[in-house]
Amino acid sequence: MTTMIKTAARANTNTLAIAFTALLGFGIMVMAGHLQAATLHDAAHDTRHATGFPCH
């Protein structure tokens, strides 16, 4: 019983860890590649074009 609860708890923690890191990566990609704020756009301009993101 205890083992089952521990296994279930570990599976939940793992799912949370996976979701958190995927979201973190998505956030970084959106910030660096897609947000249209002028300063970000100008700084990331060449990378956005070279990486094939819709730029402006």
Binding site: I28, M29, M31, A43, T47
Partner: peptide, 17 residues
């Protein structure tokens, strides 16, 4: 800045991968 943003974009991709 391009080097910095390339590193950022691919770090983001790596986290998702």
């Amino acid at each position: 800045l391009s080097i910095l943003f390339s590193a950022l974009v691919y770090t983001g991709y790596a986290l998702m991968l």
